[in-house]
Amino acid sequence: MRLSDNTLRRFIAAAQFLEAEGITELAPDVRMPVAAVERVARIAARQPERRRKLLEDVSEGKLTIMELRELLKKCRKSAKRPGGAHSTSSLDRVARELEIRNICRRGEVVLARADEDEFGWLLTTPMKRSFIVRLPEARRALILDAMMSQGSGTSFAMQRRGFLRNVLVGASLYDFVFVFAAAWHYEVEKLVQQLRPVLRKSVILVDDNCSRRPPP
């Protein structure tokens, strides 16, 4: 094909990104330029919930590479590091879920950083900002929030792979795993269905506004 190694690597990376989104074939009149797919992937690393709509617009010819470049610039400028307010909101939701399920009362939960836990080192690097909830009777719950990894500089594919790996680690080592992953809800559900029943029961998806449909 007379293509350089770097060009081939870009083609393969773009194809893998599309395949992960369920796009394995294109209609004869549909074009998905590599440069456009690359920019969608970079935007997805910061705003994963936008990736499907962007891919749809690219396939329909509604977005040019130049327009995607401007969207990527705006995305980078508006990206903010996750803060304490978001963590507090997640903890409030988890405390309510624990109370509803008669596991413990809200006042009995204690929040701690995951990297301060004896098993925290097993979590992938972008998710070191996850949190542990200490419960009565020496039980522990892990909070995994997809928003906590955004803006980490890690690629979208690695973020998603690391997040799913952390769900597996959490289900194996903690009594409960509370998962906030609106953008990856389908992927998490699919993974949980493959777990053994005893582990499956420990994973609790806490999302209100998420799509349960598979990727297009």
Results as ranks from 00 to 15, higher is better:
M1A: 15
R2S: 15
T7I: 04
I12W: 00
L18W: 01
E19H: 12
A20E: 14
E21S: 04
E21C: 11
I23Q: 09
I23G: 07
L26T: 07
V34M: 05
A36S: 15
V37T: 03
R39W: 00
A41P: 01
R42N: 08
K53F: 08
L54D: 10
L54M: 10
L55H: 09
E56F: 11
K62A: 14
K62Y: 09
K62D: 09
I65K: 05
L68C: 06
L71S: 03
R76H: 02
R76T: 04
K80D: 04
A85P: 00
S87P: 00
S87V: 13
S90E: 11
S90G: 02
D92Y: 13
R96I: 08
E97T: 09
N102Y: 10
N102T: 09
I103F: 07
C104R: 05
C104G: 10
R105D: 14
R105K: 14
G107D: 12
E108Q: 15
A114L: 13
D115F: 13
E116R: 13
E116V: 00
E118H: 09
F131R: 10
V133Q: 01
R134H: 11
R134K: 13
L142I: 02
L142P: 02
I143L: 03
L144R: 02
A146E: 15
S149W: 10
Q150M: 11
S152D: 10
G153H: 02
S155W: 05
A157Y: 02
R161Y: 03
L168K: 12
V169C: 02
G170I: 05
G170K: 05
V177M: 09
V179G: 07
A181Y: 03
A181N: 10
A182S: 15
L195A: 05
L195Q: 02
R196N: 11
V198E: 15
R200I: 00
K201Y: 03
I204Q: 11
D208L: 12
C210V: 08
R213H: 08
P215E: 07
P216C: 01
